[in-house]
C-alpha cells in the first residue's frame, strides 16, 4: 500500500527542489496538515534536509503542523477586526481552548488558526468555525459559542 504522500510524490517523479512548495501544498490538501512523517518522506524524495523543509514551511502562514480538529476555528486579525478588539478575542479564545494559534485541543475537537482577513469586516470582530461566521464576538460571548459546538457532540 502506498501512503498518501507517496501517491502525491508519484506525480512529481522528475521534479527537483523547485517543486517543494507545490508538493507541500498537495500534502496539506490531502492530510489537512503537514505531519512530521510526511515532511520526512518529502525530504527523502527531494534529497533535502528535513530541517530545511521545516524551515521553508514555517515561513508560510498557509502550512499547518498539527492535525486540524473536528472544528477549525479561524480568528480574524485583519484591520477592521483589530480596531474592534480582535487581539483580546484571540487571547480569550486561546485561554478558553487552552491552545495557542496553530495548535489543536487535546480532545481533537478544536484547532485554532489566525487569519489575516476573511472579508467580513462589517461583522468585526469575527471568528469562523468550519466556515460558520460568528459576528461581533466579545470576551463575553466566546464561551457560549464554543459550548454550543461542544453540545453538538453530546
Amino acid at each position: 500500500m502506498k501512503t498518501t504522500v507517496q501517491e502525491i510524490l508519484d506525480q512529481y517523479q522528475d521534479s527537483g527542489r523547485d517543486s517543494l512548495i507545490p508538493i507541500l501544498q498537495n500534502v496539506q490538501e490531502k492530510l489537512g496538515f503537514l505531519s512530521e512523517e510526511s515532511v520526512i518522506e518529502v525530504s527523502k524524495f527531494l534529497k533535502m534536509p528535513a530541517s530545511k523543509i521545516f524551515g521553508v514551511a514555517t515561513f508560510y502562514n498557509q502550512f499547518r503542523f498539527n492535525q486540524p480538529g473536528k472544528y477549525h476555528v479561524q480568528v480574524c486579525r485583519g484591520t477592521a477586526c483589530h480596531v474592534l478588539g480582535s487581539a483580546t478575542v484571540l487571547e480569550e479564545v486561546e485561554k478558553h481552548l487552552k491552545v495557542k494559534a496553530g495548535q489543536t485541543t487535546k480532545d481533537k475537537l478544536f484547532s485554532l488558526e489566525v487569519v489575516a482577513c476573511i472579508g467580513a469586516c462589517g461583522l468585526a470582530p469575527v471568528i469562523s468555525i468550519n466556515g460558520e461566521f460568528h459576528a461581533k464576538v466579545s470576551t463575553d460571548t466566546i464561551k457560549g459559542i464554543f459550548d454550543d459546538y461542544k453540545n453538538r457532540e453530546e
Binding site: 534536509p49 530541517s51 530545511k52 521545516f54 515561513f59
Partner: peptide, 14 residues
C-alpha cells in the same frame, strides 16, 4: 549545511 553536510538547524518562522 555547507561544511558539515548535516543541516541539523535552519531558520524557522518569518
Amino acid at each position: 549545511e555547507e561544511i558539515e553536510g548535516v543541516s541539523a538547524i535552519d531558520f524557522v518562522g518569518r
